[in-house]
Write a protein that binds this DNA or RNA. Structure first.
Length: 212
DNA sequence: GCGACGATCTCA
DNA sequence: GAGATCGTCGCC
């Protein structure tokens, strides 16, 4: 049994409704040239970011800008952003076009292309760390600014959103809690992760909050 | 035009 | 707990 395939229509809802649906689904990237083998990552942790005026922590909160324009496009596209002068992070655009909502993909399990992911990450590290944390996940998949706004549902896209291999998640397998690394709307429990999954990111978190 | 800071990570 | 490192946006 596989995770049922997500369609673009499934992503058209509110970010906080779409986010948990992405758990267990797979992001697969095909690199150009040398690192052309696909890397597939099963999503284990996500965060919802709401639309303009509705979520002070969202890049879309103050409206459309050049950077966040992809958030205001069609659901099912990627929104890539660059952070801290060195990291790229990947979001799946959701909601209605012009709404400006997205789901940050925070962590995943590398199902395929472990060798390529390890090369991209550099050094030797446990498999479970290859896509643990949003910047690590993007790095392992080889995702950067050039992938901003690409359509995850186009057959010829270098990055695609595919059904997961393990079947639907039961409610007991999913936990939620506050988002990480933000200053505003910290109380909103808009981060979801797969319980006991070793690839879910670790982080200092305010007051020692930890996924379990 | 300028400057403060950020949806991070690693290592000490 | 600091440092790496730079694009973005708000404000001067």
């Amino acid at each position: 049994m596989t995770h049922s395939a997500l369609s673009r229509a499934d992503l058209a809802g509110r970010a906080e409704a779409v986010a948990p649906l992405l758990l267990g689904a797979v992001l697969e990237s095909r690199g150009p040239q040398a690192l052309s083998d696909p890397v597939a990552v099963r999503i284990t942790e996500v965060e919802a970011y709401g639309s303009t005026g509705a979520d002070p922590a969202s890049h879309a909160h103050r409206g459309r800008t050049q950077r966040n324009a992809a958030m205001f496009g069609e659901p099912g596209h990627l929104y890539m952003y660059f952070i801290y002068g060195m990291h790229w992070c990947a979001n799946v655009v959701c909601g209605q076009p012009d709404e400006g909502a997205a789901v940050l993909i925070r962590a995943g399990e590398v199902l395929r292309g472990v060798e390529v992911a390890r090369l991209r990450r550099g050094g030797s590290r446990p498999d479970r760390d290859l896509a643990r944390g949003p910047a690590n996940l993007a790095a392992g998949l080889g995702l950067r600014g050039q992938h901003n706004d690409i359509d995850l549902f186009a057959d010829d896209s270098p990055v695609r959103l595919l059904p997961g291999p393990r079947g639907p998640l039961s409610p007991a397998e999913v936990a939620c809690g506050p988002r990480v690394g933000i200053r505003h709307a910290v109380d909103r429990p808009w981060r979801w992760w797969i319980v006991d999954d070793p690839t879910v990111s670790r982080h200092p978190g305010p007051r020692g909050h930890r996924p379990r």
